[in-house]
């Protein structure tokens, strides 16, 4: 018979697995990397947790482990810095419909933020967390979270303005898009 913690793993993966991988995908920008990160985080969390945890509590631990892994990998990550621009570029080239292109462009824009900025943006605007909750999850002060959010929003606005400016120049140019 499966141990209690194994049932919690199965339930957590069945109910929240996709959400956890999506969270990790927004952070890392790559689905395979995200899945590895979530599997690592689950194994590490349940390798340590004793029995008596419910799915909600376990998910909080796993999410924190995902964030830690992401920030850690990003800090160490020569490899990550090498492939991130390539992933973003390839996705942009592959984008088909307008909606798909917009979604992929958004993912690419996220990758241009620093890891902590990205984590704060994803937690605040995708996961709808409060500043205090983000601070707890990432183990930093609320003031630092506000600063990261402010910097990230400023960068995203700048990126968008540059993209729009480039698009307008292309439209005005002879033989342009218009």
């Amino acid at each position: 018979m499966a141990a209690r913690w194994e049932l919690v793993v199965a339930e957590l993966v069945a109910e929240r697995g996709d959400a956890l991988v999506r969270y990790a995908m927004l952070l890392s920008g790559d689905e395979e990397e995200a899945r590895d990160m979530v599997q690592d985080a689950l194994a590490a969390t349940f390798g340590r947790l004793r029995n008596g945890f419910e799915v909600e509590q376990a998910e909080a631990y796993v999410r924190r482990a995902i964030a830690n892994r992401f920030l850690d990998r990003a800090r160490r990550g020569q490899r990550w810095r090498r492939i991130a621009p390539l992933v973003g570029e390839r996705e942009r080239l592959d984008s088909g419909s307008t909606l798909t292109g917009e979604r992929l462009d958004m993912a690419a824009r996220l990758q241009r933020l620093t890891p902590r900025e990205r984590a704060c943006i994803v937690l605040r605007y995708d996961e709808d967390r409060t500043v205090e909750q983000i601070a707890t999850e990432l183990g930093i002060s609320a003031g630092a979270v506000k600063r990261y959010l402010s910097d990230a929003l400023r960068k995203l606005r700048g990126i968008l303005e540059r993209e729009q400016g480039r698009l307008q120049r292309e439209e005005r140019a002879p033989g342009g898009l218009a």
Binding site: V9, D18, A19, L20, V21, E31, L42, M106, A107, V122
Partner: peptide, 13 residues
């Protein structure tokens, strides 16, 4: 952000 699609594959429980 919330329009961004989720993962295609599943986790290996």
């Amino acid at each position: 952000l919330q329009e961004l699609p989720g993962p295609a594959g599943r986790l290996d429980v």
